[in-house]
């Protein structure tokens, strides 16, 4: 579905990505794990069209991906950004409607709105509230719901568990699985490697702008180097 070949990205004089190649198949959850500053967000921002690659190409469903954010959304990729970036000055409902900005079929939009409310009943309760008054967890749900409203097939998620209480982190990962069961494909960037590996099918490990290892999650989770660097301990349980 998504195919990235030899992607190089520089900004602010820093070479943030140095030849990334990866692939995401339809229906998969693929995770990219790595430390702060490894280039995870840079990769997502490049796919979304905010950063221009200096070399390499991104193919989506067999054709070259557009390089402007709104056109990327139009081609079916949506991005739940780091820090959620919900529109605090608008109501919950307006936030969700903006997700459907490019869609003109009102009936289908209403149906999807109902689906999002079924998935996140809390958002339905707070429909008319200003999004800025939501709690951190609710804001993350709104950001995910808003992305679902775009009708994209591939969802890029940037650190969805960041800053959330452990119980909410668990909920967020359950929601990610539910979203996959709705027929979506997910590219998940996470610092919480333990949780990410538990939910994903395959993983790429990113270090200083390069992919150092990749494979099915079982293999990655069993890799001693990965365990030492990202799972924190021999038992691999401390990051949960």
């Amino acid at each position: 579905m998504l195919k990235i070949r030899d992607l190089h990205v520089s900004y602010g004089g820093i070479r943030a990505l140095k030849g990334i190649s990866l692939e995401v198949q339809a229906g998969e959850i693929v995770t990219i794990i790595g430390a702060n500053g490894a280039g995870k967000s840079t990769l997502l921002n490049t796919i979304s069209g905010f950063l221009k690659p200096s070399r390499g190409e991104i193919l989506y469903k067999g054709s070259k991906l557009a390089k402007r954010p709104d056109l990327v959304v139009r081609s079916g990729i949506c991005h739940v950004p780091e820090g959620r970036l919900i529109f605090a000055n608008l109501s919950v409902l307006d936030n969700l409607r903006l997700g459907a900005y490019l869609r003109s079929d009102k009936k289908a939009v209403l149906e999807d709105l109902e689906k999002v409310f079924a998935l996140f009943p809390r958002l339905k309760e707070r429909e008319q509230q200003m999004a800025g008054t939501l709690s951190g967890g609710e804001q993350q749900m709104l950001a995910m719901g808003r992305a679902l409203m775009t009708e994209g097939d591939l969802i890029l998620m940037d650190e969805p568990s960041l800053g959330l209480a452990p119980l909410l982190v668990k909920t967020v990962f359950e929601i990610i699985e539910t979203i996959r069961s709705m027929g979506k494909t997910i590219l998940l960037v996470e610092q919480n490697a333990f949780k990410a590996l538990a939910v994903a099918d395959r993983a790429y490990v990113l270090e200083q702008g390069r992919i150092v290892t990749s494979g099915p999650v079982a293999q990655i989770a069993g890799d001693p180097a990965v365990r030492a660097a990202y799972l924190g301990s021999k038992s691999g349980k401390s990051c949960g």
Partner: peptide, 20 residues
């Protein structure tokens, strides 16, 4: 609404498919 969204955060607005 898109203008209001852009006023709050122009990047997030672009992520909704709005040509900012």
């Amino acid at each position: 609404k898109a203008i209001q969204a852009a006023a709050y955060n122009i990047k997030a607005c672009a992520l909704m498919g709005v040509n900012t």
